[in-house]
């Protein structure tokens, strides 16, 4: 019971499903075919950016990473926990950390085309890879912080993430199917957005719907929630860049 401070029940492991499985066949087909998936435009731009020399250091991503092959399964293990800074780091933050520390280049703006493009290119190297629980030292604390936020009621409508995505997935919210809320396709092309977008954008959409105050763009709360969602999605396969309604 909420009143006692306990948490709602999580979805049993054997019932966890990607949002892909409840999509219409046409939308699934769009995701499955690179030629039809609108996110491919971002992936191609991301590949060009991956190989482009940037910043005062005059280095490309590929120069350090020896091509793109080492990026295989990397997105399935993000966010990672940065023990030195005692903070979780998601893929877009990692891209900007590399730009600062390795390329000596200015950061790419959140939700900008170039950042989404690089993220989509990197994440695509993990397509089909299984999400595994993060066992890095310190990650547990971030996962628990995210779990708490996920279960906390917020906003004028006094809703928690869990009330929809744990307790009522599969039902209709104003005619739209409520998914389980897994993070296995980001960045993803949402038909509603007519654009590629990040996990953070999705979380801000939900917060706005709950009439809750948004955290600042770079707030740790978003990454803690992402950290928890990845642990909750352990066992699912990465689909980035996915297509969603």
């Amino acid at each position: 019971m909420w009143i006692g401070g306990a948490l709602a029940d999580e979805i049993p492991r054997d019932q966890r499903r990607s949002g892909y499985e409840t999509m219409r066949p046409e939308t699934r087909a769009m995701q499955d075919s690179d030629a039809d998936n609108p996110a491919t435009l971002w992936v191609l731009d991301g590949e060009a950016l991956w190989n482009k020399r940037e910043g005062a250091a005059g280095k490309s991503c590929a120069d350090c990473h020896a091509g793109a092959a080492p990026m295989k399964a990397v997105a399935a293990r993000f966010p990672r926990f940065d023990a030195a800074r005692a903070t979780p780091v998601d893929l877009e933050q990692q891209i900007n950390i590399c730009r600062r520390d390795r390329q000596n280049a200015p950061p790419l703006a959140a939700e900008s085309h170039d950042l989404l493009a690089l993220e989509a290119f990197v994440a695509k190297q993990s397509r089909g890879d299984t999400i595994e629980p993060n066992r890095e030292p310190g990650a547990k604390e971030s996962i628990e912080a995210g779990r708490k936020l996920f279960n906390e009621r917020r906003g004028q409508l006094n809703l928690s993430c869990a009330q929809c995505h744990d307790d009522n997935w599969g039902k209709s919210l104003g005619g739209a199917n409520i998914p389980q809320g897994h993070p296995n396709g980001y960045p993803l092309y949402r038909l509603e957005w007519q654009s590629l977008g990040s996990m953070g954008r999705r979380l801000r959409n939900c917060l706005s719907g709950m009439r809750a105050e948004l955290w600042p763009r770079d707030a740790r709360e978003y990454v803690d929630i992402e950290m928890y969602l990845m642990s909750r999605a352990a066992g699912l396969k990465m689909e980035s860049p996915a297509v969603r309604p």
Binding site: R153, N158, S208, R211, E213, L214
Partner: peptide, 15 residues
């Protein structure tokens, strides 16, 4: 899950 329609206090993180 029914939101409280005539309440302003005791809510968290209201926009």
């Amino acid at each position: 899950i029914m939101p409280p329609y005539y309440v302003v206090d005791g809510l968290t993180g209201v926009a």
